[in-house]
């Protein structure tokens, strides 16, 4: 329940408002986590926020967090320099069901910063590529300037065993890719709907339409998983802030089978 100090060893600027921090423990420590889990990151004296783990689960000695500066704590996280220290509690929450998905086609749909919690899942799938069928990454961002992990995306796009489609809501000169919301990529993705597992993360409105578009292609809500976001203070189900209907997003989620939360997902202001 008490934060442990980790040192910032690398800061990578992803976009104008988003950075990726690489952290190493101040004392030797292995930190096993599952793709989709999150940590509570604490900046001395400022506060603590839940941030998804974005690193490769095969590298448990290092933590990678991609943070968008949207509030006091995330702004403080984004202004950290190499050598600074943050407090870490975790890992918390449920994971993308990467093992259950073996033998199936995997469709990963991300919107904006929603790619951050999906990155470890894609790393896992690529590290165990032979166990999966077709693998598709569909990624939408507002503009080309908002794309995360740009170099890695380009590398992934160069692979023959992975379909990567990227779209932006609005583009300027110099963009030759797709323009439109991420759901417009679903009809062009190559997967067998009856044999597909989909992992979706992004704004709730994006997840709602993604589930609908997947359903139209024949993917059952039973096979769709989404990652939810809520205010969190404790991360262990005590503070009550993250309640979403009967679920505590911190411990029952953040990754949920869509069919299990559909009833509350439809209601406004739950």
């Amino acid at each position: 329940m008490v934060p442990r100090p980790w040192r910032v060893v690398r800061v990578r600027r992803e976009t104008h408002d988003t950075k990726t921090l690489e952290l190493e423990p101040t004392e030797p420590l292995s930190f096993p986590f599952q793709p989709g889990q999150f940590n509570m990151l604490y900046v001395f004296g400022i506060g603590e926020v839940p941030i998804s783990i974005s690193g490769d689960p095969q590298e448990p000695h290092r933590l990678v967090h991609t943070v968008r500066a949207v509030g006091a704590v995330t702004r403080a996280l984004c202004s950290l320099k190499r050598g600074d220290v943050v407090g870490v509690r975790g890992p918390f929450g449920s994971a993308w069901p990467v093992e259950e998905a073996e033998g199936h086609d995997v469709v990963i749909v991300a919107g904006g910063i929603g790619l951050a919690p999906l990155r470890p899942a894609l790393h896992h799938v690529l590290a165990n590529r032979g166990k999966y069928g077709n693998v598709v990454l569909l990624y939408g961002a507002r503009t080309p300037r908002d794309l995360l992990y740009r170099k890695e995306l380009e590398r992934w796009r160069g692979r023959f065993d992975l379909q990567v489609e990227v779209t932006v809501d609005s583009a300027g000169e110099g963009w030759y890719g797709h323009v439109g919301v991420v759901t417009t990529l679903i009809p062009r993705a190559d997967f067998d709907p009856a044999e597909t597992v989909a992992w979706v993360c992004g704004p709730e409105i994006m997840m709602r339409f993604t589930v609908q578009a997947l359903r139209e292609r024949g993917v059952s809500p039973e096979d769709v998983y989404i990652s939810m976001e809520r205010n969190m203070k404790c991360a262990v189900g005590f503070c009550g802030h993250c309640q979403f209907g009967p679920e505590f997003v911190c411990k029952d989620g953040p990754v949920f089978r869509f069919a299990e939360i559909e009833r509350f997902f439809r209601v406004r202001e739950v």
Binding site: Y42, G45, G47, K233, C239, G240, H241
Partner: peptide, 10 residues
């Protein structure tokens, strides 16, 4: 009722 919040201060 069990909800709580935290305040971080220096």
């Amino acid at each position: 009722c069990f909800c709580s919040t935290v305040e971080d201060v220096t």
